[in-house]
Write a protein that binds this DNA or RNA. Structure first.
Lengths: 115, 115
DNA sequence: TTTAATCGGTTCGCTTCCGAAACAATTTTG
DNA sequence: CAAAATTGTTTCGGAAGCGAACCGATTAAA
């Protein structure tokens, strides 16, 4: 499944994936939210509020709100750090794993349709 | 520039592109907004509010608001349809073209970094 | 042990967004 | 013509987002 990424095809791919995300029934995640979600699922643990805020270049309330929202969707959970009670560790969930897998499938399906 | 799209790499690519979009200075566009923008720039004209709403599966005010926002950024403009005064035609701008080109560059740069 | 630093959360005023419904303008139908 | 249909915008109450500043809890430093 090799894809030649030329500019116009790249944009079509980006368009098609976003359209699929808009059209499905799940609530849309913002760029910030999806970046947080994938950071947690792709990069090694642990993940903290402060660390994510620094990585994304945003303020802490942005991360807190994003976690509130995605937590409500069951995509992530919070857990107090037992070694340092100031930290909150963001943890993966089964539901979140499924969401991320579906996202990968979606992208691959659309990439495969590229001429 | 051929890219093997395996699931994990696909997710890393999606993550990296979104992270770059979050970190840059431009205001983030939502999935709906970027879908509208790329539809206008990639698909043949003319584009109307109603047509875009149907394509995205959203209500008309969503399109109106997205055009308000992106119009403020100079990425699109509206024009009354001379042949049918009820329609509003969405038109491309130079600034919008540059934005879309930069988006393509961004995606390609990150795709090229995939192992 | 008292002070200082760090962490996540909350509050603040403001902006944006949501879809349903109502609205004004225009065109088509009868 | 008048009535009906179509199109885009506005309004509505409610939800969510924004960063700056502050708060409470915890830990580290003096």
């Amino acid at each position: 499944m090799a894809v030649e990424l030329r500019p116009v095809q790249t944009l079509h791919l980006w368009h098609d994936i976003n359209l699929a995300l808009v059209r499905d029934d799940e609530p849309d995640l913002s760029a910030r939210q999806v970046t947080i979600l994938l950071t947690v699922y792709l990069e090694p643990q642990p993940h903290t509020i402060r660390g994510l805020a620094a990585k994304l270049g945003v303020t802490k309330p942005v991360i807190t709100r994003a976690l509130d929202f995605m937590g409500r969707l069951g995509l992530l959970t919070r857990k107090r750090d037992p070694d340092d009670g100031r930290n909150v560790l963001i943890q993966r969930t089964v539901e979140g794993s499924l969401y991320v897998e579906r996202l990968a499938d979606l992208i691959i399906v659309h990439a495969a349709k590229m001429p």
